[in-house]
């Protein structure tokens, strides 16, 4: 059975396992991106994060990003794994691997993938701070929406 290329998991992610899924003889480059849990954001200390996903739809949206990449960069192959649940500082939250015949496409497509994840994939991050917690409400990480409205500015 072939391993799925687009995965939401509650287990730690192996960078090498994701990378291996896109390695093949036609590839001359593999760009691998790992997104990790940052301790400090704009002077505020994060204790841990909790990610939640609409798992079935999130995996479909990751696959859609892979299809978009294959269309924009013919010959590129993508694998993405995103972790959910409770993550501590330094844990890997997402790994994106893109292989292509030449390196330029792999780099560009990998960057495209993370930007698209932040736009269309139904995954949410809840920050736990020393003095409270909130769901992070947009990709710029500047605004939290604990009640569905912009209320807390982190800047």
């Amino acid at each position: 059975m072939t391993e799925p290329l687009f995965v939401i998991t509650d287990r730690p992610i192996s960078v090498e396992d994701v990378m291996k899924k896109v390695m093949r003889p036609e590839a001359g480059a593999v760009a691998v991106f790992a997104g990790t849990v940052r301790e400090w954001t704009n002077g505020k200390r994060t204790l841990f994060l909790r990610y939640e996903a609409y798992v079935s739809m999130a995996e479909k949206m990751l696959a859609q990003i892979g299809a978009e990449i294959a269309e924009k960069w013919p010959g590129a192959k993508t694998a993405i794994t995103h972790r959910i649940g409770r993550l501590k500082i330094g844990d890997i939250a997402v790994v994106i691997a893109v292989s292509s015949p030449h390196r330029a496409e792999a780099y560009e497509a990998n960057r495209y993938a993370i930007e698209r994840i932040k736009q269309i994939v139904p995954i949410w991050k809840k920050e736990q701070w020393e003095d409270g917690s909130a769901w992070v409400g947009d990709q710029l990480e500047t605004t939290a929406y604990p009640s569905g409205k912009p209320e807390v500015k982190e800047e």
Partner: peptide, 10 residues
């Protein structure tokens, strides 16, 4: 029907 607040994955 899923209600999807602004996403913050990655």
């Amino acid at each position: 029907v899923a209600f999807i607040p602004p996403v913050s994955g990655g």
